[in-house]
């Protein structure tokens, strides 16, 4: 500062002004320009939301007529005949996602706790965090093929078990990173207070930090569930599909997204109708827990 002196100061200031493109003589144009750009940005938001609205409206309009008691309680009718439902696929989806949750939630939450723990951060934590990040961006198709080579080939059959495992792999990194980020939002002072009481770090995480952040962790889990509940891709290589109701984990199992794909790709109008209704139910299954988690879960809203 001393060496720059007053002249230098003025000079840098002018250079900054030049670079920032602000000229004092065009105030009116600048205001108009600002309004225009703000308007364009608002337009972008509207476009996004309009697309959402259009798609949702279509699905509602096309899907509602097909929703009846039969749709929820009956397996599919024989090919070409009207009627039938997706009972087998709804239960199948619930079983598969449930299986995935059983594996991915404890594993993911534990890994998230490990990453957020108040210890000296080693290279291991950084590496694991990075792996989870990268894994969450890898397409779900690779999870499917991985489980195919690991489980299906060895068991010589497609199975619901393999399907659950594949979905778990897709869920795992999402749960891990979400848990970590939410736990990190818990004020540091809280962790320090507990540590200063002579409580070991994992007890601090489990009994103090986790309960404080429970709501956020749960919301993160619903997001991860939403991600896998609607994705048939890993199932192509693992659980495949099943025309009948089945709860046998060693056999192929139907799922809602798989059935939607099959019905949509099929040649019959009755199938297409089932696909639309299936899509509506699928969206319900996905969005309902997300909304519910936000509305009814008690807990401490941690401000971002």
């Amino acid at each position: 500062m001393d060496r720059l002196g007053a002249a230098g100061y003025r000079e840098t200031n002018e250079r900054d002004m030049g670079k920032s493109g602000i000229s004092l003589y065009s105030g009116r144009w600048r205001q108009i320009h600002c309004r225009m750009m703000t308007g364009l940005c608002a337009l972008a938001v509207l476009t996004l939301l309009a697309v959402l609205l259009i798609i949702m409206t279509y699905i509602l309009l096309q899907g509602i007529p097909g929703l009846n008691w039969q749709f929820f309680t009956r397996p599919p009718a024989p090919v070409g005949l009207p009627g039938g439902g997706v009972y087998h696929a709804i239960t199948g989806s619930l079983v598969l996602v449930g299986l995935a949750c059983l594996i991915a939630i404890p594993w993911g939450v534990a890994a998230g706790i490990f990453l957020a723990a108040p210890r000296r951060p080693g290279p291991l934590a950084a590496l694991v965090r990075f792996t989870a990040d990268v894994l969450s961006g890898v397409p779900s198709i690779t999870a499917g093929i991985f489980i195919y080579t690991l489980v299906v080939v060895r068991m010589h059959t497609f199975s619901a078990l393999a399907g659950g495992l594949a979905l778990a792999i897709v869920m795992l990194p999402v749960v891990t990173r979400n848990t970590e980020e939410i736990l990190r939002l818990v004020p540091r002072g809280l962790q320090e207070a507990a540590l200063a009481l002579g409580i070991s770090w994992w007890r601090v995480m489990l009994h103090i930090v986790l309960p404080t952040a429970a709501r956020g962790v749960a919301i993160g889990i619903t997001l991860a569930m939403a991600g896998v509940a609607g994705d048939p891709v890993p199932l192509f290589f693992t659980a495949l599909n099943n025309n009948h109701f089945s709860l046998d984990l060693t056999q192929p199992m139907a799922s809602l997204p798989m059935e939607i794909f099959r019905y949509a790709a099929g040649p019959f109008v009755t199938w297409h109708r089932l696909a639309w209704s299936g899509a509506l139910v699928l969206i319900g299954i996905i969005l309902l827990p997300m909304l519910l988690a936000r509305i009814i879960l008690p807990g401490y809203r941690i401000r971002r």
Partner: peptide, 24 residues
Amino acid sequence: ILGFMIDLLAAVPGIIFGLWGNFV
């Protein structure tokens, strides 16, 4: 609210978009 709606849009599965794309 906007943020939440965009999050919702991000949670809609690909197959739904595929269905809409295919038929509409």
